[in-house]
């Protein structure tokens, strides 16, 4: 009969030898209304296992994203402040040299010399302009890929 098989599984169960499928079978058997009388004693055990599995956590889990945002915000704010201070000193430093340099602005009597000096100055200027453009392009590239990822 059915319960011979159940008895076998039960024996294996207490030896720790059963598989999940066999344990499920036991649970099913003991939750059914027709449990053999001599096996009745195991009913609460398996009934308990099934009942406990129904318990659920009802509490919401607070995920602290706000805290993180505050941290990032303060980092960003301090970066802006540093940038402000930095640029202030940078500008003021830039403003001072001309006062000194004003008297040193050389003039050339020889036109060729003047031309060479002008070309040199312009070459310096243009190379620096290119440096600026490169970094602007870099930002543009970044902006593009950002837009690809966050399609807005």
């Amino acid at each position: 009969m059915e319960f011979n098989k159940i008895e076998d599984i039960l024996e294996k169960y207490f030896q720790g030898e059963t598989t999940i499928a066999e344990e499920k079978e036991l649970k099913e058997y003991f939750s059914s209304p027709n449990v053999a009388q001599h096996l009745e004693q195991y009913k609460p055990m398996f009934g308990y296992f099934s009942q406990v599995k129904e318990q659920k956590s009802t509490q919401e889990i607070p995920l602290q994203t706000k805290k993180r945002n505050v941290a990032w915000l303060s980092i960003a704010a301090s970066a802006v402040v540093l940038l402000g201070i930095g640029s202030y000193f940078y500008v003021s430093e830039k403003n001072t040299p001309p006062v000194v340099a004003q008297s040193e602005l050389g003039t050339y009597d020889n036109p060729e010399e003047a031309l060479a000096a002008t070309q040199k100055a312009l070459a310096l200027l243009s190379s620096n302009v290119n440096v600026g453009i490169e970094s602007v392009q870099y930002i543009k590239e970044y902006e593009e890929s950002k837009n690809k990822i966050f399609k807005q």
Binding site: Y13, F14, G16, E17, M45
Partner: peptide, 18 residues
Amino acid sequence: AIRVALSRARKKIRESML
């Protein structure tokens, strides 16, 4: 080790019940 311990635990439950 898990099987052995589990067998022990199950037998203890059975014993207490009987």
